[in-house]
């Protein structure tokens, strides 16, 4: 009887997953294979034309999303790693305070934060308006409604999700291991490259996953900060679902995106998530 206790304890979690993950996904899969419209009703036809049509029609937005998500992730990695490193090794007893500061923006709604970025980047807003007033920027200068604004917004909104897992990985690195490398003739840089960086790769892996996936699928930043030329796939899903009530197409796009991301993650995990990388880094 006792043997089964752990399984009974896990039951609520299984039920939760079944009801809130498996059922909606199955429902969405089923919807993506229907044809029809809101007025005449939808019929289950198992036609895959929704997929081929969606990919053909929105391939630009698909590629743009992957590109924006990718660029934002790279920038977050470059910005976030040093921050995580600094908090883990240099912040001393103020660590918790800096971690709290990192999470502070989450107390404000995601949409509001993005909108306030819009204010900040406005053509005649407090930042550019002032600089233009001083003659430091040309009158025509603008950032809002550009690619830069969208990627900047993505970086701003998801950066903590990059920093936290890297911080956790760095925090777990035994400081005497770093001393050992330093003792064994490694320079500060070699110590970082041969010991600290490889040991933090699991955190980098997690950080990239936690930022690339939501950044690629995000509709808010493109909607608030981007112009008409920066529409991402998340915006398309939103429009198709909420405005056009074209549920089959919206579902098909979502599934395609999910498939692309899963395949990408799988390849990425094979390349970086295994011990091969650690071994390569050790050399």
């Amino acid at each position: 009887m006792r043997r089964w206790t752990p399984y009974w304890l896990a039951l609520p979690a299984w039920l939760w997953l079944a009801i809130f993950l498996v059922v909606p996904i199955a429902a969405m899969a089923s919807v993506s294979l229907t044809t029809g419209n809101l007025i005449d009703g939808f019929a289950q036809t198992f036609s895959v034309s929704n997929y081929s049509d969606a990919i053909a029609k929105y391939s630009t937005q698909f590629l743009r999303s992957l590109l924006y998500g990718g660029i934002a992730t790279v920038i977050m990695l470059v910005l976030g790693y040093p921050v995580a490193y600094w908090i883990a090794f240099k912040a001393g007893h103020r660590k918790s305070m800096f971690l709290f500061l990192l999470l502070l923006p989450f107390f404000v709604s995601f949409v509001l934060r993005t909108i306030s970025w819009g204010f900040l980047l406005a053509d005649d807003g407090i930042l550019f308006g002032t600089l233009k007033g001083w003659g430091l920027l040309p009158e025509g200068f603008h950032v809002l409604a550009t690619t830069v604004a969208v990627i900047g917004g993505l970086v701003y909104n998801f950066l903590p999700f990059m920093i936290l897992p890297i911080y956790v990985a760095l925090e777990r690195v035994n400081p005497t291991v770093i001393e050992a490398a330093y003792d064994l003739y490694a320079s500060r840089f070699a110590t970082f490259r041969r010991v600290v960086l490889p040991l933090s790769l699991p955190g980098v892996f997690a950080g990239v996953l936690m930022t690339f996936v939501p950044a690629t699928a995000d509709p808010i930043n493109a909607q608030v900060l981007g112009g008409t030329g920066n529409t991402m796939i998340g915006n398309i899903v939103q429009t198709e679902y909420l405005v056009n009530s074209n549920y089959p197409t919206a579902s098909a796009i979502s599934f395609t995106l999910m498939a692309v991301l899963l395949i990408g993650i799988f390849i990425y995990a094979r390349a970086l998530g295994t011990e091969n990388v650690l071994e390569a880094a050790a050399r």
């Binding site: 035994n174 005497t176 291991v177 001393e179 050992a180 490398a181 003739y185 010991v195 040991l199 650690l278």
Partner: peptide, 20 residues
């Protein structure tokens, strides 16, 4: 500095590189 000193150390907790 330690990396330029011709002295090596065996640490209390060994401090082996776990990824190697």
């Amino acid at each position: 500095p330690p990396n330029k000193r011709d002295i090596n150390m065996v640490f209390q907790s060994y401090a082996l590189f776990p990824h190697m």
